[in-house]
Amino acid sequence: MTPSDEPLLTIEGLTVSYGPVEAVDGIDLTVKRGEIVTLLGANGAGKSSTLNALVGLAPRKANRLVFAGIDLLGLPPETIVRRGMTLVPEGRRVFASLTVEENLILGGAKHAKRGNPAAVKADMLARFPILAERLHQKAGLLSGGEQQMLAIGRALMSSPDLLLLDEPSLGLAPQVVDAIFDLIRDLRDQGLTILLVEQNVAQSLEIADRGYVLANGRIELQGSAAELRASPEIQNAYLGA
């Protein structure tokens, strides 16, 4: 295998347990540069645990956990994020009592080496005009969709190579959901690699290149987005055919 074939992210045998609760049970997953890979599954399947474990926020064991040639095992979240992989957590989790601008500033605080923060911020505000309008408002006062934009914008302030998104469409109105999916596709088209966790199976498979289905902490199904869309399991369980 030549270096360029090496996936950007390689997960082999990832296990996440919280005491006796085994949330993720030895999964394998890869993400190649420039892809959107989606990780699907019902509530409690272990999707968030997988993403949190990748960035070091959940207890993890693995045979291999390699991002851009870096062994992630043993690295704390702050180091992993500084190396170019970041997570937009489930439920947005913007800093509600800080202003929109302060949220963005913190997102880019430690990443001067990866990109010029002022340029990244200008780029961000051009991409999200609504954030530019609300720059000095407290983030907690934004609508759900705006908070999701801010959470994504804040993560982009670190100029990541790989963006992990945990249910970005959760609890948002249909047009806002469409806007979020458009945004994800745009980001990929501009060179970002994305691992997308979703329960919105139909829309995720529309924008994804490949996907995995997680059930009870194990990979139940995997394949190209087209294969998954056509598979009877997905048709029955998720697409309501």
Binding site: P76, P77, E78, I105, L106, A109, S158
Partner: peptide, 23 residues
């Protein structure tokens, strides 16, 4: 930045670490 990080940490320490700020 350090002061804003402290306010953010009081709200959500885990997410602050996702900004690359050392706990």
């Amino acid at each position: 930045i350090a002061g804003r990080a402290m306010r953010a940490a009081a709200e959500d320490f885990a997410v602050l670490r996702l900004m690359g700020l050392r706990a």
